[in-house]
Amino acid sequence: MTLDLTVKIGNLLLKNPVMPASGCFGYGEEYAAFYDLSCLGAIVVTGTTAEPRPGNPPARLVETPGGMLNAIGLQNPGVEAACEKIRRLQPYKTPVIVNVAGNTVEEYLQVIKVLEREETVAAYEINISCPNVKAGGMAFGTEPGTAAKLVAALRPATSKTLIVKLSPNVTDIVAVAKAVETAGADAVSLINTLLGMAIDVEQRRPVLANLTGGLSGPAVKPVALRMVWQVSAAVNIPVIGMGGISNAEDAVSFLLAGASAVAIGAANFRNPTVCPEVIAGIKDYLLRHGFQSVREITGLARTEEEKRRRAK
């Protein structure tokens, strides 16, 4: 019996549902030393803006219980220089998803316009959720109307798959998800980091130069899982689940909650081969439980829960 790991996200057919999370994988080359990147479902490269961004001053990161805070501030070489790095991923014959960020609608459009020329780019992940930049980023993601307007403006600019990365720093993430679905998003990915803070009590000052940062790692997993559960119940487009996934069991829990695919972020930092390990672990899980396709388990925890409730 052959196991079918393929999943569809918009126009993309992924060979398996596992991808690195943007911002945790550079432009791919950093991890190519550890394994063949062509084993990945997709390669997601770091947040890219129209102009180069130096990022925030150090200190930019601090470890916290069960995870870490970061305030990188979207450091990237700008879209033109990023294209060169992205082209180097072509030999892997794996869909490349570029995370797109900006301060204004025009900046997002500008990035997409440049990337439209790049054959290697298969999809865009629209970043409306970066908590570490002063303007833009999360400003687009905290209000459903603003998020929808951005997506509606970007939709005509490309026929490539448009994924919208959602912020957990909102009162109602479902409302934002539904708004971007209506505006033309092909998929949503969630969650970006949770806004947090650390204080050095000896020095009596915030640890991060940016004062606040984004929390990621195992600590955020329960929050992420809950949001994936809620959003996938409310939208008809695929959900890419992420937030604290460190192993195959975590990944399977996101799929069961309703995600069609998963992204692995901070766990790459502690284990550079975590992505291939998770792919192998998902296969093992499917075989152990007699599933023939990974698509069978998307949302299975919810549909089975609904059945149980109806039976009562």
């Binding site: 945790c24 991890y31 990022g55």
Partner: peptide, 23 residues
């Protein structure tokens, strides 16, 4: 030395400010 997450150049967390002002 610096606080570090990935150690391989991906996370951009360990930057220092260079003499030219670039990280």
């Amino acid at each position: 030395e610096a606080e570090m997450a990935c150690g391989v150049g991906a996370c951009l967390g360990c930057v220092v400010t260079g003499a030219d002002g670039n990280y």
